[in-house]
Design a protein around this nucleic acid. Sequence first.
DNA 1: CGGCGACTTGAAACGTGTCAATTAGCGTGG
DNA 2: CCACGCTAATTGACACGTTTCAAGTCGCCG
Lengths: 235, 235
Amino acid sequence: MPGAVPESYLTWVAATQPTAERADALPIYQSVHSIPARRIICRERDLHDAVPVICSGWAASVIMLSDGSRQILCFLLPGDLVSTTLLFEPRSHCLVEAVTDVTYGSFKRGELKELLLQHPSLFDQLSRAWIEEKERADQLIVDLGRRTADERIARLILSLSDRLARRGMTRVDAASAIEMDFPLRQHHVADATGLTPVHVSKVLSEFRRNGLIRISDRSLAILDPGGFRRIAHMR
Amino acid sequence: MPGAVPESYLTWVAATQPTAERADALPIYQSVHSIPARRIICRERDLHDAVPVICSGWAASVIMLSDGSRQILCFLLPGDLVSTTLLFEPRSHCLVEAVTDVTYGSFKRGELKELLLQHPSLFDQLSRAWIEEKERADQLIVDLGRRTADERIARLILSLSDRLARRGMTRVDAASAIEMDFPLRQHHVADATGLTPVHVSKVLSEFRRNGLIRISDRSLAILDPGGFRRIAHMR
DNA sequence: CGGCGACTTGAAACGTGTCAATTAGCGTGG
DNA sequence: CCACGCTAATTGACACGTTTCAAGTCGCCG
């Protein structure tokens, strides 16, 4: 069960339940919650003694500025810990917001900490989550600091499609186009890439005109993965 | 001894040496190294079984792009772990480069991991380092995504001055100007803020013209801390 | 039917990048 | 001692990418 999908919450459960009980009997979760789209899961400076893990749906961690502009730090997909720092301190330093309807489970921090010290495999898994979280943050820094709007947007889409693929949440069709659910509004893309919604619209239109992607009805297809990756990486 | 200076390597030593031995007898370090300015401390994809901690001097972790441009992820000051991810995996995903002459000590990862599990206080200290590293990365994301050149540069300077102040490495003069050593070249500032060296020069000149800062001989003074902070935060 | 949010499109403004010329400082070697 | 070449920094003119502003479409829901 574990292994192939490092970020899956099933993996978390498997690691904390070495007796191989079923994933749907989740005594490790303190509780499971449902949140409708656009609602806030936790506020910055809120205190929580529980660590949320996304079970279904998409969410975003966001930092708000005093002038009303927003920066999305990362999108949270099913299986993601909301933030590894929440394992160590109860205060979240950013807002977590549901993009779609979301369900999430919560670990009690205290219990988790004990388990952590007892189960080396869980410890390793946590380290991997930490490393991955940090590497994504660093990549975003490079994207925002040194890449054009086209590159930023293409890389956001590709990074999401890679993360979804690892969860088995993408389809590849006959023409080898990669298709996935894509619930983000253009303002989400703008907030994540440091651009304006207007410019995001222009870039996506350009991508569409060039036959690179197709977007319809909250789903996105990468029609030319090779060409799209080329746009994403090179200057 | 510990407490007040969370990032100081003295703190690290104190925590790993609860018998209160002197900091200059460092059996915990596998070794201590000296590196001249501009030289590389570790390369991306290098493997290391040791975790470096800066003892003196400034360094930078850098990501290089294929077109030759660079993004600095963070500056490393005395007492900083080069990266908390190195505690968990031997592969560094970015370049670490000495800005000034640097000395650094190395922990053996294996030994450190054992100590970590035995000493809860060391564990807490590590969590704090981790949280701080992540918060700085997230702030940089916001700066690069949502702030102007003036703001980015002012915030870089202020963040460095705050970190130095916590180490007792700043002076405050009669006119309450904050003074510090500032070994960065303008291209370092450019690589850290996602700007070009030319534009950095223009912004710094503007700051100087407005009496906000003074730069001379590798040292920087914030002449008007209030005004400077105002530029840094507000729109 | 009216209103609202998401998206599109075009024109103009603005911030930052690029290019080029110039100066200053510094270590090296003749 | 000076000439040389190097790197760092400065400055101005211009180009380019992105933002801002505005108007307009479309689909959806009350």
